[in-house]
Design a protein around this nucleic acid. Structure first.
Lengths: 333, 333
DNA sequence: CTTTTTCATGAAAACATTTTCACCAGAATT
DNA sequence: AATTCTGGTGAAAATGTTTTCATGAAAAAG
C-alpha cells in the first residue's frame, strides 16, 4: 500500500515531475492541455501530496504551535478554538501543547516545536524561557504572547486591559457602598496577577480607602488557592464585605468555600470575579464578572502571527494589542 | 541565521554524518571517545535536529491527529488533555482539529492529517467519512474512535457504557417514584444518542411504564436544542415530573429554560443529566449526573493508538473498549 | 531575415535526515 | 597461518518534494 508520489503522476501523464509540481502549485507557465492531463493523472492515480517532503524543501510547514497552561480552563479552550478557526481559514494547522504552567514542560514543548519547524508560535508564557523564545524570534520564527506579557520578551502580544478592568470592577464595588473589599489574586510575577492587583489598589486609593493587608490573598491562579484564601478571609475576626476574585479557577474554589461556610451572597458578602465561565451566569445568585474578549484575543493573535509568517517583517518592532474586557453586572454584587 | 545541521556537527567533530546520526540515535556501534567528541560538537555548534527531514526519511512523524466536535465542550477538552498527557509521555505531539460536528470539515481535516503524515488519528467521528477512514487504516494509519462507534468503521473504539448508564439513571428516577419521565437526547444516527435513548426505553419497559412520545425530544446535542425541548416539555398540558437530559450542552440549555419558567427543582421537576460539567455540582440544587470517565477514555485511546503505531499489528481485529460511567446522586432528583 | 522574448518543458540540485553497503583493522576462531 | 567475525567508520542512496537552470521552439520585435 505504498503512497503514490508525484513521480507516479508524472509517469501516468507522460511528463516530468517538474511539470506536475508546477500544475499542483499553479506555478509558472504550463500548457492548458498538459494541465488537464496532469490533473486527470492525479485523479486516476489517487495522488495525495506528502506535506513532509514539501515542507523540507519549501521551508514552510503550515503549522503553528500553541502553548497554553491548561486546555481545561475555558479561557484557554476558547482561545484555542479561536486560533484554530483562524488558522484553518488561512490553511494552517495547530500543534497543541499543555504546559501546565510548568516552565520545564514549556521548555520541552518549545524545543519540540522548534524541531518540528512550526511556522510560528502562540504562547501564554511562564516567563522562565524568554531567552529561548527571543532566540526563536531572532532565528525567524515569529512568536505571539497571549494572556500576559513578559518583560524583555521581544514578541508581539495580545492581552486584555487587566489593570483598568480590575480598577473599574473594584470602583463599582466601592460605588455600591463597600469599603472592606478583599482581593484574591494570582502570582505577581506575571502581568495578569500584577495588573489586576494594581487596578484594585488604584481603585481603593482613588476613593481614599486604606488597603488592609489581611484582605489581600496572593497565590496561584487555581482552585485550591481560591478555596483556601476564601476560607481564611471568612475566618478573619473582621471579615471583608466584598471580594474580587481574579480568575475563574480561583473563583470556583472561593465559591465552594462560601458555600461551605453558609455565607449568603450578596447579603453577607458581595462577590465579583475576573473571567466569565458558564457557571458564573448560572450560579444563584448570578455572578458579576469581568468578561474577557477571549475569542477576539485568539483571533487577533492568530492573524498577527500569520501576518508575521507571511511578511517576514522581522524588522518591525513588536506590537502590544490590548482588547478591552467588559464588565457584566449581575446579582452577586 | 541558518540552522545548524548534522553536517556542521560532523565537520566540527571531524567525523562523517553517519557517525553523528548513529550517536544521536543510539544506533549501531560507536566508539566511546567518538561518542564524546560528537556530543561535544553538538553542544558547541548548537545543533537542533530537523524533525521534518528526520520524518521524511524515517517515515514517522511522532505526531498524532485529534479530531473532536468542539474543544469547548468540557468532555472534549478533558479528553484532549488526557490524550496530550499520554502522547507527551510517549514522545508524541498532538495536532488539534475542531470539526464542529461538520462532516465536510471533518473530511478536510482528515485529508490534512493524511498529508501531514501523522502516525495515527483519534477521532470522534461524524460517521460520514467512514470509507476514507477505513482506507487510512488499510493504508497503515491506525485510527481510534472515541465517544461513539460508527457501524462499519473497522477501527478500535473507546467509549462509555451509554446504554446501561442511561438505563441505570432512569431506573433510579423510577425508584424515586416518578412515572412521567421525559427524555431530551441527540441525534439517533450516532451511538451516544441511540444508546442513551435505548437505555431510557429499557428502564421504562422493565418497570411497565408506557413511553409517552410527547415526552421524548430528539435533536442536536447542543444548547439550543436543550432549551427549546425543555420549553416544549414545560408547556405541555400534562408536563413530565422528571427529565433526563442526555449531554451537558443540552442540559445547560434545558436548565436555562427551567429557570425562565420558574420551575423549582426537584419539587416541581426532577432533573438528571448525562455528563458532569463544573456547573452541575455548583448548581443549586446540585444536579444528579452520569459522570463519564472522560480522562480515562482519552488515556486509553492514546495508549491503544500508540500501541498500534508501534506494533504495526494491522492484522489484529479492532477492539472496542467500554469504560463505565458513574452515577453521582445529588439534590436535583 | 535576424535577434530577442516568451512559453513550455525536463534534468538535476537542494532540503536534512536515516539507513544500507562497503570497507578495514584487529580479534577470535579454525 | 588462514579464516571468520566484529567493532568502528564513511560514502552514498533514499525519502518526495520545490526550485533553479538549461534548452528548444515558437512568437514578437527589430
Amino acid at each position: 500500500m505504498k503512497d503514490k508520489t508525484i513521480k507516479d503522476v508524472a509517469k501516468k501523464a507522460g511528463v516530468s515531475i517538474s511539470t506536475v509540481s508546477r500544475v499542483l502549485n499553479g506555478y509558472g507557465n504550463v500548457n492548458k492541455e498538459t494541465n488537464e492531463l496532469v490533473r486527470k493523472a492525479v485523479e486516476e492515480v489517487g495522488y495525495s501530496p506528502n506535506a513532509i517532503a514539501r515542507s523540507l524543501r519549501s521551508r514552510s510547514t503550515k503549522t503553528i504551535g500553541l502553548i497554553v497552561n491548561n486546555i481545561l480552563n475555558p479561557i484557554y479552550s476558547l482561545m484555542a478554538q479561536a486560533i484554530e478557526d483562524t488558522a484553518r481559514e488561512y490553511g494552517y494547522q495547530l500543534l497543541l501543547c499543555n504546559s501546565g504552567a510548568n516552565s520545564e514542560y514549556e521548555k520541552v514543548y518549545l524545543d519540540g516545536l522548534y524541531e518540528k519547524k512550526v511556522d510560528g508560535i502562540i504562547i501564554a508564557p511562564t516567563g522562565q524561557n524568554k531567552e529561548k523564545i527571543n532566540s526563536f524570534i531572532k532565528s525567524g520564527i515569529p512568536v505571539i504572547q497571549v494572556d500576559r506579557v513578559i518583560e524583555g520578551l521581544v514578541a508581539d502580544a495580545v492581552v486584555t486591559n487587566n489593570r483598568s478592568a480590575a480598577y473599574e470592577m473594584v470602583s463599582r464595588i466601592i460605588e455600591n457602598g463597600y469599603k472592606k473589599i478583599a482581593l484574591i489574586v494570582g502570582v505577581q510575577t506575571i502581568t495578569t496577577g500584577m495588573e489586576r492587583m494594581t487596578g484594585y489598589f488604584s481603585a481603593l486609593a482613588e476613593n481614599n480607602i486604606n488597603a488592609n493587608s489581611e484582605y489581600i490573598k496572593v497565590g496561584h491562579f487555581d482552585e485550591n488557592t481560591g478555596f483556601d484564601a476564601m476560607n481564611e478571609l471568612l475566618s478573619l475576626p473582621n471579615p471583608p464585605e466584598a471580594v474580587f476574585v481574579c480568575n475563574n479557577l480561583m473563583a470556583k474554589g472561593a465559591m465552594m468555600a462560601v458555600r461551605e461556610n453558609n455565607i449568603s451572597i450578596p447579603s453577607q458578602l458581595s462577590f465579583c470575579m475576573f473571567d466569565d465561565p458558564d457557571w458564573a451566569a448560572m450560579n444563584v445568585p448570578s455572578i458579576t464578572a469581568v468578561k474577557q474578549p477571549t475569542y477576539e484575543i485568539g483571533t487577533k493573535a492568530a492573524k498577527l502571527l500569520i501576518n508575521r509568517v507571511n511578511n517576514q517583517n522581522k524588522e518591525q518592532k513588536p506590537v502590544h494589542e490590548v482588547i478591552d474586557s467588559k464588565i457584566i453586572i449581575r446579582d452577586s454584587m
